[in-house]
């Protein structure tokens, strides 16, 4: 078998490293390696240009306000390349601060700053922070499933006419009002669910890997099921405790 594989671009771990985003990289990489695929992770730091056309999955995480602004400035120079990547169906996961960055505006404490305006969505600063465990119902993977995570944000996101990533069962999601959590556009998922979202939601991880393979090779690549014992136990624990009390 030819050794198929994916290249994962981790944007600015030097700035956006606040909530265990490393977990998402580990999940993507290991689930490739465990199946015998190759996996390359490239961390982009400082001002270096990002070759989006060489990447199969892009991860943009969250950081504190200053770091988020600085990351936005770094991306500003490559806005067009990033936009092309997303429009062509490139797989991307944008979390928390990274999620806000893609919209028209970014919420900062007591003020609103300009975003990259890649999606026509906007975040505004809210009066208080939404902090807590989150469970959403999402059909993004093609199957209607629950996804578990944690949110900690003061921004209120309005996604306009875009499709949400899921519907909130527990927690606040985009703004605590419309029941939406996150956004989906082509192969981009943006959400306030921060940090280690992927390890506990292996079905979501595999969906992203599948989409990236399809994008890269033009045809589906079969992903052998993994045992996922620890994954399922961590997922079940969160769902059972937070939903069923």
């Amino acid at each position: 078998m030819e050794n198929k594989g994916l290249t994962i671009g981790h944007l600015f771990p030097d700035l956006l490293n606040m909530y265990g985003d490393k977990g998402n990289i580990l999940a993507l990489r290991n689930r490739l390696l465990w199946r015998g695929f190759s996996a390359e992770v490239i961390a982009f730091e400082k001002e270096e240009p990002i070759p989006f056309d060489k990447l199969d999955i892009v991860l943009l995480g969250g950081g504190d306000e200053k770091a988020q602004l600085l990351a936005g400035q770094r991306l500003q120079g490559q806005r067009k390349e990033l936009l092309d990547y997303i429009e062509k169906g490139g797989v991307m996961l944008a979390l928390c601060g990274g999620y806000e960055m893609l919209g028209r505006t970014v919420s900062q404490e007591n003020e609103t700053a300009m975003g990259l305006n890649i999606l026509d969505i906007c975040a505004e600063a809210g009066a208080n922070r939404f902090i807590g465990n989150v469970v959403i119902q999402s059909a993004v993977t093609g199957e209607d499933t629950k996804i578990v995570g944690f949110e900690n944000h003061s921004g209120r996101m309005n996604i306009g006419n875009y499709k949400p990533f899921g519907k909130v069962i527990l927690g606040h999601g985009n703004n605590g009002e419309d029941g939406n959590c996150g956004v989906v556009y082509k192969n981009l998922i943006g959400t306030y669910l921060h940090g280690p979202l992927l390890p506990k939601n292996p079905h979501l991880t595999d969906y992203l890997l599948g989409q990236a393979f399809l994008q890269k090779y033009g045809e589906p690549v079969s992903l052998t099921p993994l045992a996922d014992v620890a994954e399922k136990e961590a997922y079940d624990y969160a769902v059972n405790r937070f939903i069923n009390g």
Partner: peptide, 9 residues
């Protein structure tokens, strides 16, 4: 702290 995300850091 009710958020255990930091375990991944």
């Amino acid at each position: 702290g009710i958020d255990v995300s930091w375990l991944w850091d």
